[in-house]
Design a protein around this nucleic acid. Structure first.
Length: 847
RNA sequence: GGGCGCGUAGCUCAGCGGGAGAGCACUCGGCUUACACCCGAGCGGUCGCAGGUUCGAACCCUGCCGCGCCCACCA
């Protein structure tokens, strides 16, 4: 039977494959999720929704490629892959982008203007717009960005099912976040609390522990002179003298001999003359500063701890805007104290510090000059001013931060999860162990998911916070600033005896911690949710273990009492050539689309897939060139093999059987690596085999495949070529989806991405009992012949008159099986063999 | 301060108990029944340092040095 000759292109090229195949895959539904399949046949991926605040960068291309390789592998293994894309468009990044892009700012006090149109170009001054207008602009810009993101992902060849795309701000996501919150509230896991809160004065919002970062900042110890009860001076070192009016106590270590006599007595603050107690606390450090600290409400989190544990009064001085409040705190009762405070009122912390120090100096209440130091200060990771601590009412979600049982349960979840690479688990553990409070989930911002609650107003119009009115689950999503709570009418909004909506929105992580529930349509499609949840894989970058990964586990643990996924695959970062993390803010970043256009998507994917899981990797166009070369080689080698008649069939020659035996080993290695999410290893072993196939096997058999040694011998060679090519294309398909699909289409039916993953056992069956080392020995001989030609500065095509091979009997036997191929490949006229002892194989060549 | 990871050829990295490897770069040669976006050959390393375990260590143990990251109550 003759097979149809494949339609081979004259000069194949990898250029233009991306749009061609992206379009066909979409039309053919190659990556559609089949929701009729049972859970055991589903591979569900909790795709990271990229932040929509500008553009994707090389790091995204890098890590999403890793996930895509795994998705494609699982699909070829016969699973139906649940692989949605999401856009993380809620939250501060979008707000900031909208402010800059349109030149506007949100003023919630303004009424909605339906005809508002932003200017073509942002002006010098930001235009105030209503909350609703602001949100509309956020949505508009997000949609534009999302379209550009999708185009990039399609060009990169991500095998996502685009029918399942979600946005973290869309109605379904809002409803899901609100539903989960209401359930948390009903179970007592979410609660409202008025407490000192880390506060960003620029964005005027509370910030959670997970969003903090330390930055080294220059500061100085100022030594202030307090007055002991007996009238003598007491030196107190502080880096924040401006907080003196907020001082509520002095604290030293209980064993500190210097200060022990003072415990139980009081001291007076300089300038303000306020009497404060001297107290002992085990966490006071005798080595630090003067060994005795002033406790202010609040300078840092240590102050908060002492304030809480020692039950101290509150004398807050810093307001929401970071400036000193107008009225002096309680305790500043004397006229001089009030006058001194008036100097600080309205000032920023920086200005207040200068004025406070000046006043202290004038009154002779400092000891010596300030001593400069450098110390770590807490910042909001997206902010550029140090955080203050402000007492506010906020929503919290229990996360084990103040509950040892829950913390232990969450640590246990971390041990249940399979981490790739394994050592990333340590980051989770140290984070959970270091939690110092519950998760603050409310933000005083606009573009986010509102809390689905309202509060009663009493007869005087004061908000009653202890019994929030909750939305009905069936009404979700709600916006309490426009929707009305059950049993009320809009006329009652904001009036005494009526209601008011909760003004805050949820932390972006409070939404994205629910990506499995959002994508799996929890409570909206029970059948789907049961088929995909808990999911198989959470791929993500290692820097958001403490935020996204941890918070997702918290939500799943609280709501479903189960781990949200079985595996977590952590990807590294892309580093600049100078080894710094590559990020947009640093500029000079190559845009991904330009890379895809220059090298081709397969080439860029090759670079990404070459990096070890979890490892930070240098941006390396050199690797992309190699990937491009590999893709072109696949094209050319395939065309050549097919033009020589490559087609699956029975292999009868020992050399061909040996090839398939070697290939079986490669299939085993690649399969084991991908089962372990080690895409890089799978690619490496496949690539190594492929070059061996091209350089050695193809060279050895091409004459035979062309029929120079007879029809039967040719048939075996063509079967060896065809079988190996089919397997190799499938092994490469997860990494180089475009070129493999192109070649597949020349001679096979359907998509290679729906073809079954190769089975080593099948190859071993075809290889039979032949000596698997025949190919190795033949390769050794032609390598020596090539070297001889190189050294003689001859063309590879030069004729060899005679080759004398001296080798052990076993090797000679193997070579005999492939002698005709060796002669053709080396252009050798006569081969003489001589048996010798030992392992060595020697070849003497005469031209 | 605690933890994790990494230091192997000029560069990027693999190898993690028994012959020091790959690709790039470099040198030399070659238009070979596909591929000059190519092919062949070659040069190149006290495997961070110092001890220890072992018949044997790049690989295991200890200490140190350097780099990166994570965490930490930062007066």
């Amino acid at each position: 039977m003759t097979r149809p000759v494949p339609a081979l292109p004259e000069r194949p090229t990898i250029d233009g494959l991306e749009p061609k195949w992206a379009g066909r895959w979409d039309a053919m539904g190659v990556y559609d999720f089949d929701r009729s399949r049972p859970r055991a046949e589903v591979f569900a991926i909790d795709t990271p929704p990229p932040t929509v605040s500008g553009s994707l960068h090389v790091g995204h291309v890098f890590s999403y490629t890793h996930t895509d390789a795994v998705a494609r592998y699982q699909r070829m293994r016969g699973r139906t892959v649940f692989y949605p894309m999401g856009w993380d468009d809620n939250g501060l990044p979008t707000e900031r982008r909208v402010q800059n892009h349109y030149g506007v700012r949100c003023d919630p006090s303004l009424p909605y203007d339906p005809d508002f149109e932003p200017p073509e170009r942002p002006g010098d001054r930001q235009i105030p717009v209503s909350r609703r207008t602001f949100i509309e602009l956020c949505e508009r810009l997000a949609r534009e960005d999302e379209a550009a993101f999708e185009a990039l992902w399609r060009r990169l060849g991500l095998s996502v099912d685009w029918s399942m795309t979600y946005q973290t701000i869309d109605a379904d996501a809002r409803a899901t976040a609100q539903r989960a919150f209401l359930r948390n509230l009903a179970r007592g896991e979410a609660y409202l609390s008025e407490a000192p809160t880390l506060w960003d004065v620029t964005f005027r919002t509370a910030v959670a522990q997970a969003e903090l970062e330390d930055r080294e900042r220059p500061a100085a110890y100022h030594r202030l002179l307090f007055e002991r009860a007996d009238g003598t001076d007491l030196e107190i070192a502080t880096t924040r003298p401006e907080l003196l009016p907020a001082c509520v106590a002095l604290v030293a270590h209980p064993d500190d001999e210097r200060h022990r006599p003072l415990f139980g007595t009081t001291a007076r603050t300089p300038v303000f003359g306020v009497e404060v107690p001297v107290l002992a606390h085990r966490t006071a450090d005798p080595e630090k500063g003067s060994g005795i600290a002033m406790v202010c409400t609040f300078g840092d989190t240590t102050d908060v701890m002492w304030w809480r544990e020692l039950q101290l009064p509150t004398r807050a001085v810093i307001g929401w805007d970071g400036r000193f409040v107008a009225d002096p705190p309680a305790g500043l009762d004397t006229e001089p104290a009030r006058a001194a405070y008036a100097e600080l009122a309205g000032a920023t912390a920086h200005t207040a510090r200068e004025r406070m120090v000046a006043m202290l100096r004038e009154q002779g209440r400092t000891a010596g000059d300030p001593q400069p130091i450098v110390h770590a200060v807490k910042f909001y990771e997206k902010g550029d001013k140090p955080l203050e601590i402000v007492t506010t009412r906020q929503w919290y979600l229990r996360n084990g931060g103040r509950d040892p049982e829950l913390r232990a349960a969450l640590l246990k979840r971390g041990r249940e999860l399979q981490w790739h690479p394994e050592y990333m688990r340590a980051r989770y553990e140290s984070w959970v162990e270091g939690l110092n409070g519950d998760w603050l989930i409310s933000r005083q911002r606009f573009f986010g998911v509102p809390f689905p609650v309202w509060y009663r107003l009493d007869e005087r119009g004061e908000t009653v916070t202890d019994a929030p009115i909750t939305a009905d689950e069936s009404a979700l999503p709600v916006d309490p600033s426009t929707d009305v709570p059950p049993g009320y009418s809009e006329a009652q909004r904001g009036v005494p005896g009526g209601f008011t909506g909760d003004p805050d929105v949820m932390d972006t992580w409070a939404t994205s911690s629910l990506t499995p529930q959002i994508a799996g349509r929890w409570e909206r499609d029970d059948d789907l949710f049961a088929r995909v949840f808990p999911m198989d894989l959470r791929p993500q970058a290692h820097d958001i273990i403490r935020t996204w990964l941890f918070s997702t586990i918290v939500r799943s643990h609280l709501e479903h009492e189960v781990l949200p996924w079985r595996h977590a695959a952590l990807s590294g970062w892309i580093l600049d050539p100078d080894r710094k993390k590559m990020s947009k803010s640093k500029g000079n970043v190559v845009t991904p689309m330009a890379l895809l256009e220059e090298f081709g998507s397969d080439a860029v994917r090759y670079w990404a897939a070459s990096a070890r899981p979890g490892t930070d990797t240098a941006f390396d166009p050199g690797q992309m060139k190699i990937g491009r070369r590999l893709a072109i080689k696949i094209l050319n080698a395939s065309r050549f093999a097919l033009s020589a008649g490559a087609a699956p069939g029975n292999v009868t020659a020992a050399l061909d059987q040996a090839l398939l035996a070697e290939l079986a080993t490669t299939v085993d290695a690649a399969t084991a690596a991908l089962d372990d999410f080690d895409y890089a290893r799978a690619l490496e072993v496949t690539e190594r085999f492929f070059w061996h196939f091209c350089d050695d096997y193809l060279e050895l058999v091409k004459a035979r495949a062309y029929g120079e040694h007879g029809d039967e011998a040719a048939a075996s060679a063509r079967a060896g070529l065809g079988t190996a090519l089919s397997v190799l294309l499938r092994l490469f398909a997860p990494f180089l989806p475009f070129v493999t699909e192109e070649v597949w289409s020349w001679w096979q039916e359907g998509s290679v991405h729906r073809a079954p993953w190769p089975k080593a056992a099948d190859l071993r069956g075809q290889a039979g009992a032949a000596d698997p080392d025949v190919l190795t020995s033949a390769t050794d001989v032609i390598t020596v012949v090539r070297r001889a030609k190189s050294e003689a500065k001859l063309s590879m095509r030069a004729e060899v008159r005679r080759a004398v091979i001296a080798a052990p009997r076993a090797v000679l036997d193997r070579l005999a099986l492939a002698e005709a191929d060796i002669r053709s490949a080396g252009r050798i006229q006569d081969i003489d063999v001589r048996e010798q002892d030992g392992e060595a194989v020697e070849v003497a060549v005469t031209f």
